[in-house]
Design a protein around this nucleic acid. Structure first.
Lengths: 199, 199, 199, 199
DNA sequence: GATGAATGAGGGTTCATTCAT
DNA sequence: TATGAATGAACCCTCATTCAT
């Protein structure tokens, strides 16, 4: 496979600049001019590559969602037991690769747009569905026949992870990554224990 | 105490209109003109009452924070045991009085501004500190000497509550309030059980 | 009746400035900034009074159409015989009050937009229908029972008038008003004569 | 004469695409990008063939003017009597070969630019002069010594033809070609009759 | 106290144009 | 020859803000 085309490269540049600008300038100040400037370009060229600011935003959300998806897949591939799979999902979401201040700022920005952008809402549903699917799949193997517990823990853990992302976005880097990961692991541990899935 | 002055009444009208506009128009479309129109006023007068849009936003955040604080105090006043106090805090945060689509939309909007508005960030810290204080106070009575567990459960529960607020904001009313409350109660139940605080 | 409100006055100022700008700057160069500047204002205020550039354009077309309508009514009111009525319509269209370089430039500009603006097309239909109605009404009285001739002369005369407007717009003031009027009068004279309506 | 060079072919392609775009996209939306796309090219190359958008526009006007000139010459070549020559000019202008929706849309577009483009104005003068020349030449033979009538009918007929072009542009194809031609023929018939040129 | 006029800045978008490849 | 990258200017529009009334 050849090297990425200039178009792909520029699009990636702009997506990264978009992330950076949302993080550093703030979601409301992330104008096309500022984003493009970070990529060493001018605002006009964004139309050339994305047609629209909305499409740049969408591409950016898709980008970070895809990165998270890849990280999850990577870690899942190395997991063998259901418990390892559970931890893999947690670590993909809260590990240092994805759980970063800029990323969390972008997620927060997107969340603020979901209710008024069907396109972004669709992407969000996809991401959420993937997380739920991964969690419940692992949990079902550990809690056979306890569908209710599976669903509850899935919901609880994913909500907790969302809450941790939110904290990260609000603290803007002031959050302790180890403590964060422990919180999620501890939750799932006691929840499984309570469901008699662990000795 | 006499009836509220016209100024106070107008300010309250505008704060409520601000909440409504953020919820229905969306955070980016909540212009002063639209907000004022919802209050039956024009944009110009907002400067008279708040000086600034930033101050209106700040007053609005203070308003919903205060409402949440009052609700918490009200419920805490009716609680006697530490466990009841814990549930009172949960119910104040997730009960129907405060846990509403418009309120969650406003919280989400504020969160998006925190990193670039020290004033809002300060308000957020106050709210968070109050929640943590209430939770850890109750937990300390139930888990004497287990400071680590107290801190962990405080953090976990408050993060979970944040995650539930986030979910509410994203689902825009599509969330099940009973399930939501149960999730938090269940979390605290198993966490306490695990810490040997419950039989 | 009281004096016109400031809003009406400003709207009229802007409509006049729009006419002037289309005439002098050209249809493509008639930007909101230039139009507003001619009215001693800035571009932003146009939104305040018209909401839209399209609405300003529409109001401008309505304005010149209305002026033409008033001129026609004024002259028709002074006419008694059918022939006088016919001449009244011609003179309203080609007389010095309406048949001016700026007006014709604006008509030409509108014509260029009709095919892509249903709103303007509707206004055009109204103006055309009024002209046709006035002409055929007078002609019917002079050519009873000769519906075909009435229709043909109506169409021919109105087309000729349009052609004269077009010439005026293209010559930009270089047209001879007397010759112009004579052309139309001569056309109707010979056409009526040919239809045996005149001795 | 050899086959047209690639350059000539491309220029013709672009001129035709320009006509099409003005007609279908509208004069304001006829950007170089859209025009070039219709010709299967990109906007950048237009500069190579025409240097300028203005020059493309000019070439396009020259093209349709030339086509009309050729059609006129073709029909004049087949005419013998002065009356036939007169009809030949009318038919060249209003016949199906040139009197088409796309062509009339382009004429209308050009007329809107004449007053602010000396180059286009010059082309227009040439076209008008040719029409006037053809008409008055034929009329002079039919009305010897009646220079005034010749001039008046020339002016009247050419104005009527312009008006018919205008109607065609505004109706965008909804005009009846037979009725249109009859209108012009009828005009010239009665005008000649009135000048005693016809029995 | 309240309006509505008015500004000026900024945003997104479109576009003609230039230029390296 | 032709593309597509890139610019910079201009456009319309929205908005917070100020201010006379």
């Amino acid at each position: 496979m050849g090297r990425p085309s200039l178009k792909d490269q520029r699009r990636l540049d702009l997506v990264r600049a978009c992330i950076q600008s949302i993080h550093e300038d703030g979601p409301e100040a992330a104008s096309l001019a500022r984003i493009a400037k970070r990529a060493g370009l001018t605002a006009g060229i964004v139309g050339h590559y994305f047609g629209d600011k909305a499409e740049l935003i969408e591409a950016t959300m898709r980008h970070i969602g895809r990165e998270l998806g890849h990280e999850t897949a990577r870690r899942l591939a190395a997991a063998t037991t259901p418990l390892e799979r559970l931890h893999a999902v947690i670590d993909a979401n809260l590990g240092p690769e994805q759980f970063r201040p800029d990323t969390s700022a972008v997620w927060l920005s997107f969340w603020g747009r979901l209710n008024h952008s069907p396109r972004l809402a669709r992407l969000q549903r996809i991401n959420t569905a993937r997380l739920h699917s991964n969690l419940s799949h692992a949990l079902r193997m550990m809690l056979p026949g306890q569908d209710e517990a599976v669903q509850r823990i899935t919901l609880g853990l994913s909500t907790l992870i969302d809450g941790l992302w939110l904290r990260a976005a609000l603290d803007n880097g002031g959050i302790d990554p180890v403590e964060t990961r422990d919180l999620a692991v501890h939750y799932v541990t006691v929840a499984l224990h309570e469901a008699n899935a662990l000795p």
